[in-house]
Each structure stands twice: as C-alpha cells, then as structure tokens.
C-alpha cells in the first residue's frame, strides 16, 4: 500500500470512529442536559440540548432530598466486596473447569451455564424465603451472598483460560509445581484482561443493581443509589431532573473504573508468558 493510500485509510477510520463516538455519546449528552432541567421539560419535544435556564440546584438538591451520601457509601461497600469475592471465586473455580480433568466436569459445567438462563423473577421468592430464614433480610450480607458466587464469572474465566496453552501448565507440573501454584503464579498473571473484564462487569452490575436491593434492603440506612434515585418516582409524579443529576453522579465511579483498567488490555499477554 502506498503511503498516501495508508493515510487516506487512517482518515476514513478516524472519521468513522468520530461518528460512532458521537452516536454513542448522545445518551450522555441527554443525561447531562436533562440533569439541568425541571422535570416537566425533560421529555419535552423537540429535545432542548442546552437548557435555557440551567438548574444547577438539581445537583445540590439531590443531596438534601435523599440521604445520597449514605446511599453512595452503601453501594460502594457492596460493589467492592462483591467484586473482590467474585474475582477470587470465579477465577479459582474456572481453573478446575479449564485445566483439570475430573469426574462430572462437563455435566457440572453445562448445569452452571444453563442456570444463568433462569430469570431471577422465577426464583426470587424462594431465594428471599431462604435468606429470611437465615435472618439475613435487611442486611448487606444478603446482597453480598446473592451476587458474589455467580456462574457468569466462572464461565467467562474458563473460556479465557482455555485460550492459554496447556503446555504452560504441563511444563510447570513437570517442574513440580502444585495446581494451586500454577493457578496463582501462571494463570492469574496471564489473565489480567479477563480479570479486568470481570471487575468492570461486576462493578457495573452491582453498582446499577435495582431489584436485589429493592427486595432485600427496606431500611433507609441500608439502601443503595439506584433505590435512592427511584425515590424521586412517586405514585403520581416523577422528578426526572433530579433523577438524571443523580445518575450523572452515579456514573462517574463506573467510568473511572473502566478507564483505569484499560491498561490491562494489552496484546499478547499469554505469549509473553510462554517466552518467560
């Protein structure tokens, strides 16, 4: 390819990316603009992207109308604990599914996947009854136990481990390393992209979870951001301006986590391990 042709391809590529970025960012622009409006103007047609009289007070009002500080602290606590547990238990279990041979492996694994298919609405009530019997209703522990052991994380980690060559494990076994050692010293360092992905997904899922906390946390001092924001939707009215300003604030930690984990998406991690 000639140099000028290469440059032309690049320009088209960037143009494409810019258009894409624009389309993808419109919801955010809408959220920002809605967060500075009165509720009645939020869904007004045609969309007024820059509000005439921006209501900056929305951003101060949400702190006084609901105990947002407590809600954020609760959500942060749950999110961090669940994410850490999820990272550990998923990556640990997935190692067995991907790299070890044992009785009932495939059956167990297929069962794991298929359970993801059952919608939560179908088993929410039996689950709640179990938690209530254990006296865990209205505790953060209930939410943690509910979400820390997911089949999704195991499935994802297993798939990632599978693309790491078996030769690496074999070599280590010949060197006398235990399976636990292989997991900790070889697999984990190689799976930073997958661990980052699980971190991002779990973080987002727990941070934005609504139904779980809604059912399990009925005491104000235990509630999370998403329930807090729904407090602005009442039986006969809804304060969408305030909801959006709260949503914008709630979005910031998610973006920070996403951006800060980007550096672990580096090419050829596995092969570099092969050489070392």
């Amino acid at each position: 390819m000639s140099k000028s042709k290469k440059a032309a391809v690049r320009i088209i590529l960037y143009l494409l990316l810019l258009i894409l970025a624009l389309v993808m960012l419109t919801p955010f622009a809408w959220m920002l603009s809605a967060s500075l409006k009165l509720s009645k103007d939020v869904f007004l047609f045609p969309i007024q992207w820059i509000p005439e009289n921006p209501r900056w007070s929305n951003y101060s009002d949400i702190w006084s109308k609901i105990p947002l500080g407590i809600f954020i602290a609760n959500t942060a606590k749950l999110t961090v604990i669940i994410t850490l547990l999820q990272l550990f238990t998923s990556s640990f279990a997935a190692y067995a599914f991907a790299k070890l041979r044992f009785k009932g492996r495939d059956l167990l694994f297929m069962g794991y996947i298929a359970t993801i298919a059952v919608p939560w609405q179908a088993y929410m009530v039996p689950q709640f009854i179990i938690m209530s019997r254990l006296h865990l209703n209205n505790t953060h522990t209930a939410i943690i136990l509910l979400q820390a052991f997911s089949a999704f994380g195991v499935f994802m980690m297993r798939q990632f481990y599978q693309s790491i060559p078996d030769e690496l494990c074999e070599a280590a076994r010949i060197d006398g390393m235990s399976e636990y050692g292989i997991y900790a010293k070889i697999m984990l360092p190689l799976s930073k992209p997958a661990l980052s992905t699980i971190t991002i997904f779990t973080f987002v899922a727990v941070w934005n979870d609504f139904l779980g906390p809604l059912i399990y946390l009925t005491k104000t001092e235990l509630k999370t951001i998403q329930i807090g924001l729904r407090m602005f939707i009442s039986q006969y009215s809804a304060e969408y301006g305030l909801i959006m300003s709260g949503s914008v604030i709630a979005l910031i930690p998610v973006l920070i986590v996403f951006l800060s984990l980007q550096k672990y998406f580096v090419e050829g991690v596995a092969s570099s391990g092969l050489k070392g």
């Binding site: 070890l100 179908a122 088993y123 509910l146 052991f149 089949a151 399976e179």
Partner: peptide, 26 residues
C-alpha cells in the same frame, strides 16, 4: 478429583446455597 473440587468449592458452595437451591425449588 479432590484437588479439582477444592478449586470449585468456594464458588460452588455459595452458588448452590443461594442460587441453585431456590432455583431448583422454583
């Protein structure tokens, strides 16, 4: 087998108690 099960256990115990049991009940 035992080693393999020990890897799965931390996830599986939590998973079966709080997801699998209610799910099977459902």
């Amino acid at each position: 087998n035992l080693i393999a099960y020990s890897f799965i256990a931390p996830n599986f115990i939590g998973f079966s108690l709080f997801t699998l049991v209610p799910l099977i009940f459902a």
